[in-house]
Amino acid sequence: VIEELEGFFDRLSGVPGYGKEVAYLGGGWSKAVPFKCEDACLSLGDEQPMVELLVMDYWCNWGKAWVLVDVED
């Protein structure tokens, strides 16, 4: 399956081997961030836990930010 995706990115970009480079980046899209009990207990107090977000676009421009989150059970 990964080879098919690499081939797709090669054809999309017109650059042989580009799909392999994209595969090395790894990543994905997360709908949730895992937390431990300690994190949830922290969020019930006056403080919220922080997570680091990495955002990357099609051209590999990227940015990172730290954000406060509300932990839900």
Rank of each mutant, 00 (worst) to 15 (best):
residue 54 L to A: 08
residue 23 A to L: 07
residue 57 D to M: 06
residue 55 V to M: 13
residue 55 V to W: 08
residue 28 G to M: 02
residue 73 D to T: 02
residue 50 M to S: 09
residue 28 G to W: 01
residue 49 P to N: 13
residue 25 L to C: 09
residue 17 G to H: 02
residue 19 G to N: 00
residue 17 G to S: 04
residue 52 E to K: 10
residue 44 L to P: 00
residue 55 V to Y: 13
residue 8 F to R: 10
residue 24 Y to N: 12
residue 59 W to E: 15
residue 36 K to G: 03
residue 55 V to G: 11
residue 49 P to L: 12
residue 71 V to I: 10
residue 24 Y to C: 09
residue 45 G to Y: 02
residue 2 I to F: 13
residue 48 Q to N: 13
residue 37 C to E: 11
residue 35 F to N: 05
residue 5 L to T: 09
residue 16 P to Y: 07
residue 63 G to C: 14
residue 3 E to Q: 07
residue 2 I to C: 12
residue 66 W to Y: 12
residue 19 G to T: 00
residue 25 L to A: 11
residue 38 E to H: 03
residue 67 V to Y: 09
residue 70 D to P: 02
residue 51 V to Q: 03
residue 27 G to S: 03
residue 24 Y to W: 03
residue 18 Y to H: 05
residue 58 Y to L: 11
residue 18 Y to T: 03
residue 38 E to C: 07
residue 6 E to V: 00
residue 66 W to H: 12
residue 34 P to L: 10
residue 24 Y to V: 06
residue 47 E to K: 08
residue 43 S to K: 08
residue 56 M to G: 01
residue 20 K to W: 02
residue 40 A to H: 06
residue 44 L to Y: 07
residue 34 P to A: 13
residue 49 P to K: 07
residue 37 C to F: 11
residue 39 D to E: 11
residue 66 W to F: 14
residue 15 V to D: 15
residue 70 D to H: 14
residue 28 G to E: 04
residue 58 Y to E: 15
residue 11 R to T: 13
residue 49 P to Q: 11
residue 26 G to R: 01
